[in-house]
Design a protein around this nucleic acid. Structure first.
Lengths: 334, 334
DNA sequence: CTGAAAGCGCTTACAG
DNA sequence: CTGAAAGCGCTTACAG
């Protein structure tokens, strides 16, 4: 164990080293680093040069301790299956890391006991918790944290209390309209895990866009956001009368749809147009690359952390419902 | 920004609070917490009770600062595609969190510029770096860190310098033998990303087990560890003369094989036995559940962190090559 | 525009 | 077996 070995490691440059080199006080360096308070341009330049030279990087442990801000942020997550959750989770971690907050990860498989996971988090002394899918839509989970007086911010969860998301409904409408504008009249749909608000919103968006255009709904099959469910759903969907387009509620399922189409000898997009949702990695490792909706995952992670911190400071649950802009990314699958 | 709001948040219990309640010094509490040095049983009991009562949880920022151990550990990872990398990455993060070390995540898509990613890590002041697949097998990457005098520990990478892995070769042999013992004589194989040492080892294990049993090699197809490549490979594999068993180099591809088999009307395992590798989540969300090799991901993450810390302390690259035990998990796909 | 002092919560020698 | 003191690297009032 390293715990018993002598701490001989290279001491990295501290704020004092920088100060000494420049010939100012540590305070001034701190001001420059944090761009806070007043200091001359010359000072700023000199400090920055010394920082570069010494390879100084701020010690976040010291920082968060000094800020008396050792906030402990819990994250209750499912074992990541799809690309979306993995990416979001990593974004969350990077953000907490950047801000120097302590983060306590707690996994709870859908099959596991959520109550146990929650009390673990509580006993770890978390000041608040961040909830990515799929738990963001379980009133029970939220209620438990509230009972313990811990604010919660969900990501892509049910709106109405601290929540960060995109407008899934509008995005789904927009991508459906894209298909309609390209002349499609029979558009199949693969739904996502219906226990999640975002999945239901996407389906509503699809349906309303079809209605608004005066075309009937295409065949609809249930999915659960997994590639596998996408394979199965597409197989049921690709039967006469054939749809000319298919909208899958996420990229994993859209990629699966492309696979099935190819296997049945259908060209994508000429014989079957396919669109997905999320713009995760699979969107560009599939051929053709997927037309999809991009969610600003990094921004969402950042925003959720900020809202949570604010709620913790104010000792109350936030009711902010932050909706970030999505982007329709047109590639070659539709 | 929360940065400007008053720090009104609930102050969580500190070591002093615990000490006061028990009527001892903070030192004693510290000793009990770290189980270090001598203290009476009565003290331990009392301290633990107070900890429980006050909901005390150690502030890792303060701890790592006091330990003068603000080691910065870099992690160079690819955008996670498969379940294995996500799970490993999260394990790594949990471990760094637990030990209170600062961790700097740096993503580099396979398409991205590795050199840029490396210099970012270096400029962030990392003391050493952890490298999960797929970069653990690129001599260039390792060389660059060494040139900068930063120790590196790879996970499932090429052995010979700080490396943590399982014996992929032996594991592959064992699971192949399981198939042989069940009477299979024509066993197909789906290879993984051949730029990775672990993938090559698995293939060698498969081949040697077949040779040792005196049966010929089955058909072999290339894959890249993705579900999609598994679909394609299996489609090429399931042609006459049909194999009766299929060994995929990871679970994602094995799950894909099951999907294709079912679609072709083949029962698994009676008409086609399928085995995977890794024991990631997909192994149990597939039906039938996969027989596979379990890698002790959490232990691997822990061990890699420890080896790296030791190398940093000793200011030199480690040459430890730690091989952790795997487990053959028999479920219902073979 | 800049600095000296105190403190964040913990740990490690050093004393008893 | 237990404690008082000092320090980890940073930041925030408070002074100039």
């Amino acid at each position: 164990m390293s715990d018993t070995s002598p701490p001989r490691r290279r001491r990295s440059a501290t704020i004092k080293d920088v100060a000494r080199q420049v010939g100012v006080s540590a305070m001034t360096v701190s001001r420059v680093i944090n761009n806070k308070g007043r200091f001359s341009d010359a000072t700023r330049l000199a400090v920055n040069e010394a920082i570069e030279q010494l390879g100084f990087a701020r010690n976040t442990a010291a920082r968060s301790l000094a800020l008396a801000r050792s906030v402990r942020i819990g994250v209750l997550y499912d074992r990541p299956s799809g690309a979306y959750l993995s990416e979001l989770l990593i974004g969350l971690i990077e953000e907490a890391n950047r801000t120097g907050h302590q983060i306590v990860l707690q996994r709870c498989d859908s099959t596991g006991d959520v109550a146990v996971a929650i009390s673990r988090l509580l006993r770890a002394g978390v000041d608040g918790v961040l909830i990515p899918p799929p738990f963001g839509d379980e009133p029970d989970v939220l209620a438990r944290f509230h009972a313990a007086d811990r604010p919660v911010v969900t990501i892509s969860g049910r709106p109405g209390h601290g929540a960060v998301r995109i407008d899934d409904y509008a995005a789904a409408q927009e991508i459906t309209r894209l298909l309609i504008d390209k002349g499609h009249r029979r558009i199949a749909f693969i739904a996502g895990d219906e226990s999640q608000a975002a999945a239901r919103d996407r389906q509503r968006g699809y349906e309303d866009a079809c209605h608004a255009a005066g075309i009937g709904l295409g065949p609809i099959e249930a999915g659960d956001f997994s590639y596998r469910s996408g394979i199965e759903a597409t197989e049921r969907l690709l039967t006469a009368p054939f749809p000319t387009a298919l909208f899958a509620s996420n990229d994993d399922m859209a990629a699966a749809a492309v696979t099935v189409a190819h296997r049945k000898g259908l060209d994508v997009p000429t014989e079957l147009a396919v669109v997905g949702f999320d713009d995760t990695r699979i969107a560009i490792t599939t051929w053709p690359e997927l037309t999809t909706i991009r969610q600003p995952l990094a921004d969402m992670a950042r925003a959720a952390t900020e809202i949570l911190l604010r709620a913790i400071d104010q000792q109350g649950q936030s009711d902010e419902d932050l909706i970030l802009p999505y982007t329709l990314v047109e590639r070659h699958s539709a």
